[in-house]
Design a binder for these strands. Structure first.
Length: 231
DNA sequence: CTTGAGATGCCCT
DNA sequence: GGGCATCTCAAGA
């Protein structure tokens, strides 16, 4: 007769997921965090299942002096989360339709964040496809900040959510996503001297990176590697 | 392939 | 009331 040995480990002895990125990871300048988040895995727990995607595109919004950063216009109800400690989600609505997901970075009182702009779906693809209205191609599931929020059911209800918690987090699966390139950030033409800062990071050649519509501003910041039309 | 329009909420002046 | 860290669709080349 077969014997089944049950092993019971006290919950306190079960290690926290060693893969999950900690508050320390986010408690650094936004530009460092934006670069380091490339290749990490964003996970959204929804209805008892995990939706996951590798982060392939980010942008840094680097503090109150960065004229592209919402917090540069002062501390308001909307930007409140950014002024707090790192590792919390800053979610806001844009153009009346779409949500954008950021992670707060740097130290308490220094408002800055990293916008997650695109993911390559890894887990829960069919659920995310459905949430996106069943697009014809998988690259349309997460290739943009509004798209990935729709795919993962991320909305204003997750504003201020602890990204060390059980609903939304990022983890390190030691993926090697390929060469990382930089470019100016998308849609910040109003930001004066900060307009051309190369604070957008993306995986070169990855088809899940968002398509950038704006024209190339020729040689503005010496980022000679920037190619228009990189998908 | 490209461009342009329209959808529409919310924040902040 | 202006403008926004966007996306989709339809039309034209």
């Amino acid at each position: 007769m077969k014997r089944v040995v049950q092993i019971r480990i006290p919950k306190s002895k079960i290690p926290k997921s060693p893969l999950k990125l900690s508050r320390d990871f986010y408690s650094r300048p936004a530009i460092e965090v934006a670069s380091d988040l490339i290749g990490k895995v964003l996970v959204r727990r929804l209805n008892g299942r995990n939706l996951a995607g590798m982060i392939v595109e980010t942008e840094a919004y680097a503090g109150p002096h960065d004229l592209a950063c919402h917090a540069s216009k002062g501390r308001t109800r909307r930007t409140e989360v950014m002024f707090g400690p790192a590792g919390y989600a800053y979610v806001y609505m844009i153009y009346g339709f779409h949500f954008c997901l950021n992670v707060v970075t740097d130290h308490d009182g220094l408002p800055s964040a990293v916008l997650i702009r695109a993911i390559e779906p890894l887990g829960g693809l069919s659920t995310m496809r459905r949430a996106r209205g069943n697009p014809g191609r998988d690259i349309d599931v997460g290739s943009g900040p509004g798209k990935l929020c729709k795919a993962m059911s991320i909305d204003k209800g997750l504003n201020g959510e602890d990204m060390e918690g059980k609903i939304l987090w990022a983890e390190d699966r030691h993926f090697k996503p390929g060469p990382i390139r930089t470019s100016p950030r998308v849609g910040v033409d109003y930001a004066g001297e900060y307009r051309d800062k190369p604070w957008r990071f993306y995986v070169d050649g990855n088809p899940h990176v968002s398509r950038v519509k704006f024209r190339n501003r020729s040689g503005s910041d010496g980022d000679s590697k920037f190619k228009l039309g990189v998908q």
